[in-house]
Amino acid sequence: MKSNRQIEHFVAPVDETPLLPTDTLRVEAAPLSLWADAWRKLRRRPLFIISSVMILLIITVALFPGLFTQTPPNQNCLLANSEAGPTAGHPLGFTFQGCDVYSRIIHGTQASLSTGVLSVLCVLVIGVTFGALAGYYGGWIDAVLARLGDIFFALPILLGALVITQLPFFRENKSVWTVVLVISMLAWPQMARITRGAVIEVRHADFVTAARALGVSKFGALARHVLPNAIAPVIVLATLELGVFIVLEATLSFLGVGMPESIMSWGHDISAAQTSIRTNPMILIYPAIALSVTVLSFIMLGDAVRDALDPKSRQR
């Protein structure tokens, strides 16, 4: 249906552009760097405060489990206590094997956290090195990295991890380090890709050209000018991956191909608690809560850091 209304003239209501309080800008004050700015943003985010407090607590538990429980996790397991409920000194009850659930959770923190942190460090070292070289120099390093990245990208990480952990070397030398090695081998290409992209964005910036013109060597410019300005997305990915790697370790241990039995891991505990799921599900739920809360803390931290460091997402 067409309107018959005649529009004689139309003038859009135009507001005068209001005068913004730009006069209050203090020109003499030094501009905040990206990091100082991000830190100011972070300090005010409740998500950041909550996750930092939780992570500090988790780190304390991992470093000093003795502060939180006096019960050794593996000794004194009495089959008489199998699946028994909470008693004095054993607030969460006992596992199928009669071990103290609370003590096992406390002592399992270390494996999860150390695997996560070590894997992230390895991935950072390998990924940033290759990614920065490929993005900055281009040429054959870039071509090799692109192909390698494609190949690893086509191999889903859990699938690859399952195959690698069954190699004789890994099967016979199970330890925190083999899990870290498996995760790093499969996860570094993504870090390299992100670094490469960030380096490519920065490498032709004016301040890099200026540094080169002042006689800084090509590698020196990469190390002192390009990398520090390309590191923000890398930090964000690293924080998020910490949580992802902790899940991966727990999943591998759950499948029986991760940590050796001698090391306490939440994945093991959840796997062992499967036998009790119908009779006493809480034996499974407690370590699951510990795992989820740990991962949630790191993912929340990563989310807050991304919001603070990514200017695009904070504009609006």
Partner: peptide
């Protein structure tokens, strides 16, 4: 959504099964 991301698949599997 952050909570959902943080809960590993195998934990979610058992909880839903239960």
């Amino acid at each position: 959504s952050l909570v959902v991301i943080a809960v590993p698949t195998f934990v979610l599997g058992f909880v839903f099964q239960l």
